[in-house]
C-alpha cells in the first residue's frame, strides 16, 4: 500500500478521534494504583484495631431481669423485751428448692407463690421513711472450690474479707431508687440475737439464711466472728445476715424502710454450676433511731438469670471499701 493511500486512509479518520488523541488521558502511574489500596487497607486495619478492643470492652446493656418469683412467708413474733419466740407460722405450701422441681427450666420463670401473714408483737415506732447510712461487712470463709465472689464480680480463691458500704442517706428514698424492683419474693423472719438458734431457714434455690439483729454487744461465746469488734452499739444496731448456699453469687444490695417494715434487698445469681459450702455474711449498721427491732423485717429475694445484670446490680449498689 502506498504512502498516499495510507495518508488517504488516515485522513478519513473522524475529527473527534483526532481531537481526542490531541489530549490523551494519561494513565496513573502503576505505583500509585498499587499504593493507594495498600494504604487504604492499612488504615482499615489500624481503625479496626483501635475500635475493636473498645467494642469488646463495652459492658452489655442492662435488660429487665426475669425473676423466678417464688414467695415464702414465715411469721415470727418479736417481744418487746427483745426476747423472740420460735416461729409461729410455717409456709403454707411446699417450697420448691430448685427451679427444676417446679418443672421449669432455668430460663423459665417460676411462679409458685407462698404467702402468709407476718406479724410482730412488738409495738411499732411508727412510720419510718428516712433511710440512713449503713455499713455492711462481707466475710467469705475459706472455700477452696469457690471461684466467684458476690461483691467484686472477680474470680478469686481462698479467704476474702471485703468491706462494703452504701450510702442510703437521704429523705424518703423511693422504692424505685433504692431497689430496682418492687415485688417481694421471699419473706424472711427476723431473729433477735438473744434467741440465737441453729435453726436456719431454707430458702428457694437451696439457699439457707440466718438474720440476726444485735442491739448490744453479745457475749463472747455468741459473738459471731464476722461481727466487727469495734462496732458502736450505743449508736447503732447490728444486723447480721448470713447465707449458706450453693450459690456463690449472692449479695445484699440494699435496705429500705416501708412504714413499719424494713425490707432487705437480696440478689442471687441463678447460675448453673453451684458449689457447696459457700457462706456469705453481711453486717449492716442500722441507727438505733430507726427502731429496726420494732419493725417487721423481710427480704426481697431476687433470683437473676443474667450474670451481667447481677454484676451490674452489685457494682451499682455496693461501694467497695
Amino acid at each position: 500500500m502506498s504512502q498516499a493511500e495510507i495518508t488517504a486512509l488516515l485522513n478519513s479518520l473522524p475529527d473527534e478521534w483526532i481531537d481526542s488523541a490531541a489530549a490523551p488521558q494519561k494513565r496513573k502511574p502503576i505505583s500509585l494504583l498499587r499504593t493507594v489500596p495498600a494504604i487504604a487497607a492499612c488504615l482499615a486495619v489500624l481503625i479496626a484495631a483501635a475500635v475493636y478492643p473498645r467494642l469488646r470492652g463495652t459492658t452489655p446493656p442492662r435488660v429487665p431481669e426475669t425473676t423466678a418469683a417464688v414467695t415464702q412467708s414465715v411469721t415470727t413474733s418479736v417481744t418487746e423485751s427483745g426476747q423472740s419466740t420460735s416461729q409461729t407460722g410455717q409456709p403454707s405450701g411446699t417450697v420448691p428448692t430448685t427451679a427444676s422441681e417446679t418443672g421449669l427450666s432455668d430460663s423459665q420463670s417460676a411462679s409458685a407463690v407462698f404467702t402468709t401473714e407476718t406479724t410482730a408483737s412488738g409495738s411499732s415506732s411508727g412510720q419510718q421513711t428516712a433511710v440512713t447510712t449503713g455499713t455492711a461487712v462481707t466475710t467469705v470463709p475459706d472455700s477452696a472450690s469457690r471461684t466467684t465472689t458476690t461483691t467484686t464480680g472477680q474470680e478469686s480463691t481462698g479467704t476474702e474479707h471485703t468491706t462494703i458500704e452504701w450510702d442510703l442517706t437521704g429523705e424518703c428514698i423511693s422504692t424505685e431508687e433504692t431497689v430496682p424492683y418492687s415485688v417481694p419474693v421471699v419473706t424472711i423472719p427476723l431473729r433477735r440475737w438473744e434467741d440465737i438458734t441453729d435453726e436456719v431457714l431454707m430458702l428457694p434455690n437451696t439457699v439457707t439464711a440466718d438474720f440476726r439483729l444485735f442491739t448490744a454487744l453479745p457475749q463472747e461465746d455468741d459473738l459471731p466472728e464476722w461481727l466487727p469488734p469495734d462496732f458502736d452499739f450505743a449508736e447503732n444496731d447490728c444486723l447480721v445476715v448470713s447465707f449458706e448456699s450453693n450459690c456463690a453469687d449472692l449479695a445484699v444490695t440494699g435496705i429500705r424502710l416501708e412504714g413499719d417494715s424494713a425490707v432487705l434487698a437480696v440478689s442471687c445469681l441463678d447460675a448453673v454450676g453451684y458449689q457447696d459450702g459457700f457462706i456469705c455474711c453481711y453486717t449492716l449498721k442500722i441507727p438505733k433511731s430507726l427502731n429496726i427491732n420494732r419493725k417487721r423485717f423481710r427480704a426481697e429475694y431476687r433470683h437473676m438469670t443474667d450474670d451481667a445484670v447481677f454484676r451490674g446490680l452489685v457494682k451499682e449498689y455496693l461501694i467497695l471499701g
Binding site: 478519513s12 488523541a21 488521558q25
Partner: peptide
C-alpha cells in the same frame, strides 16, 4: 473497515493508534 475497527477499540488504545499513525 479501519474506522469500524478503531471505533471498537477502547479509547486509550484508539488515541494511541491515532497519535502514532496520524500524528
Amino acid at each position: 473497515a479501519v474506522r469500524a475497527f478503531l471505533a471498537e477499540l477502547p479509547q486509550h488504545q484508539r488515541d494511541l493508534f491515532v497519535r502514532r499513525y496520524w500524528y
